[in-house]
Design a protein around this nucleic acid. Sequence first.
DNA 1: TATTGTTATACTCTATAACTATA
DNA 2: TATAGTTATAGAGTATAACAATA
Lengths: 150, 150
Amino acid sequence: MECTSSPGGIIDVPAGSVGYLLARAGGRAIRDLNRALEPYGLRSRHYTVLSASAARGGLSQRQLGGVLGVDPSAVVALVDDLERAGLVKREADPEDRRTRLVTLTERGHTTLARARELAAETDSALLGPLSGTERATLESLLRRIAGPPG
Amino acid sequence: MECTSSPGGIIDVPAGSVGYLLARAGGRAIRDLNRALEPYGLRSRHYTVLSASAARGGLSQRQLGGVLGVDPSAVVALVDDLERAGLVKREADPEDRRTRLVTLTERGHTTLARARELAAETDSALLGPLSGTERATLESLLRRIAGPPG
DNA sequence: TATTGTTATACTCTATAACTATA
DNA sequence: TATAGTTATAGAGTATAACAATA
């Protein structure tokens, strides 16, 4: 009977453990990023929406949901938050009046830049125990298994 | 403007992306395992409780929470479910009448064995794109960053 | 008829505080 | 007083169905 309080590491990992380790590390990554973004009134989901909108320049909400693997109804709430904070605008699509193109405001771009820094710092803290090449290896392996959204 | 429907892979990953990839892969792992366990009326959290209880043989609920990184109040609900399903028992601790030792029933052991198989299959499916050595590398890297529970 | 955005709803997960019985 | 278990509750995340406007 050793280390029952376990304050230093993972002791009992179920067989079939890689999924468990992924879920645990992923949960930690989200919690850490949420904490870092808290002063800006944002959460990690807002950051991904902001980032995807900037990268594509005027995505519809349906496209946002597809790219990020988020349900369209959830996208509505996230864009609501960002619009209320003045970080994005919903603009009319001249080609289809059903869709609303999400674009970043100037303030949205500056906030995104700051959020990127915070995300990079959070990543560095999480990956602290790993060397540079090990981090690259991990990212490469994760990209191959993370698969499509959903 | 390429692949806006993105049915084949992750296209727009925010900078500071390893955490994002971890969260995405971890979410997928949990969803897949939950789906596999559904016919048994269990979810992934039940499986970890079952597995940890078997490995240590008679853990208190407080210890379970510590080992798994789950809040004690959540442990109560999980053990309630498992006890109702006849998979675990709450036994009196002869040394401290406050604590209740969680142990597996015979049926709990057989169910755990089956759940282990399903978890291993789920892991294999998730890690399908990776070779054996790559899987080992991934697991090793994850163990170093997953850190203590919580 | 199909699709976009939207609302409403529900269930899981997580986290916190407070209560009880024991220590 | 401190701890183990428990209860209640609230928030975030996720998923589904249905509806209005538009295609």
